[in-house]
Design a protein around this nucleic acid. Sequence first.
DNA 1: AATATTGGTTTAATCGCTTAAACATCAATG
DNA 2: CATTGATGTTTAAGCGATTAAACCAATATT
Lengths: 339, 339
Amino acid sequence: MARATLKDVAELAGVSAATVSYVLSGKRTISEETKARVLEAIEQLDYVPDLNARGLSMRDSKLIGVVVPQTEPGERLMFQNSFYSEVLGSIEYYARQKGYHILISATDANESYLTLARQRNLDGIIVIGMYPDEFYHEMKKTQIPIVLIDSYCNDHYYHNIRIDDAYGSYLATRHLLEKGHRDIAFFSGQMKENGVMKKRLLGYQQALDEFRVEFKGEYVFEGQIDYQSGVELAGKLTASSQGITAIVAAADILAIGAVKGLYEAGKTVPGDYSIVGFDDLEISQYLTPGLTTVKQQISLKGQKAVELLLKHIESPSLPKQEEILPLELVERGSVKKIN
Amino acid sequence: MARATLKDVAELAGVSAATVSYVLSGKRTISEETKARVLEAIEQLDYVPDLNARGLSMRDSKLIGVVVPQTEPGERLMFQNSFYSEVLGSIEYYARQKGYHILISATDANESYLTLARQRNLDGIIVIGMYPDEFYHEMKKTQIPIVLIDSYCNDHYYHNIRIDDAYGSYLATRHLLEKGHRDIAFFSGQMKENGVMKKRLLGYQQALDEFRVEFKGEYVFEGQIDYQSGVELAGKLTASSQGITAIVAAADILAIGAVKGLYEAGKTVPGDYSIVGFDDLEISQYLTPGLTTVKQQISLKGQKAVELLLKHIESPSLPKQEEILPLELVERGSVKKIN
DNA sequence: AATATTGGTTTAATCGCTTAAACATCAATG
DNA sequence: CATTGATGTTTAAGCGATTAAACCAATATT
């Protein structure tokens, strides 16, 4: 026995298919009597409307696409990074509340995601992370409402949900300065023009400025945003030994690697080096000592993105919005006060 | 200018819609000449077929549902657990290679996932984790091909992808025994009938048996599978101080919490206690010391699940399959040899 | 009394695609 | 030379919904 269709329900209730549809959508007045009969039939047949068919006729899909970066072609590192998972979870949750489902795709080839968007008639897309310019160009063509998370793309076609990255590392750096540190290294991922890392460096510099501490180029260590890179940068730092007493890491995962690297070089945290991270990954609280870090409300990002996207879907003329979410410093055990 | 449809292509190429469809599907022979003209038109209009419409008529969806457990209603913890993210990533990847997209839903109310499955005409479902009996009963009704990952549900309707949990903890325990430990505690999550935790306890007992070490009920510490629980169980253990020298944790996250708990009680790993985990989370290698643990190939689980599911979709008469994936012990720094 | 309005329901077209069946051509067959 | 067979293409009927427009009673209006 195959799934019941609208027609089956109509037959059983002794009405036309249209009537059933109207009962379900409430777009026309239906007598209480027939309404009851239809609902009864729906119940009996355990009828569930086919969203595909509905979409075909309504020209929508109740489907939201989510694009996450694919670090390496063939690899799916982003899924291992709890940051992405947490945003995803949040998006899924809030979208579902509103009757939307999410279609995740981690594609490196932009083209392929574009195709997906059209094949599936996506009602909207949430793009997490930063991509090459070309990507934004292509995506724009789809005419699908799009919300960017954590992107500094300033094309006014897109809505934006971000944090103030510069302010975040400003907070981290200021915290160390207040604890008496003056020789503070900055660990970062690859600096791209207009990228997140660059912004975070900026905040670091601003804090130094404020405390009238000279910015030194050799205090900046650039690597990748991963654990191994943190280990390596820490190795470089201890080797160069310039009297540095603290580190601002532009990402928790870098900080975590750095702790290990320092440990390998016989140094301890916060004994020899104080360190502040950025992101507040779930792991960070589990370390010993706990990592002092800049916390962002990751799941709030997902929630806001969904809200904004749905608002746009409902009123397509919505002007570009940009929402900057709050940050806060979480003190744990990785920072020590010095004289 | 809206998206081009089959009809548009047909018009431009001067043929009927059916012809275009046949060119695309290759289900009828079409002369090279018209084929060329159609392809040219497709190119020009940048035509992409609408999968919804296609699905409506073909009675499929090229959509695979993935069910992940929702720890608490309203919470979405599973997404924060890197185990799930890694499996998800892998499923998405392999499904996409075969032209399928994945629809993730983390619902606690089984009913709601069932509805989703029917609304969207899912071609198949992959269920990760263990659920109440009732859930499997309901799911079966959908008649949709289903592959279970990490479930001991033995209803022969379902395919299964698992590891040998008992063997895993056997490996962990044997390793400690070989290193000279005889008083080994077992930290576990909640033991449910026929659940994963119970199986892991079994392996622990088997290893003890093999080494003719008496099993002691008071060496078993039961809690939840989360960090906090690990901390607490470690607290209990140190308080009871029964000469225990090692711990087998039935999950890495428990082990990680335990390390913290021991540290808080003034004990070190592996100095005072040796510890072996289970899962090999990404975090586990980043700890200091690294966690010795039982590694499973998480992404292989996703891959196998997709392969099996698609095989079933293609030949619906496929008898129930069960695949047990390999495990291996990864030695890091959390175990010390004793006399 | 004739007409307009309203509430409730059905008819039929449509969304974009697939596919069985019908239909042309043209070459090969008996 | 009529017939059969390939080959290539079109016609038209779905798939499961929505919805504008038509329809029918019954009631309200003038």
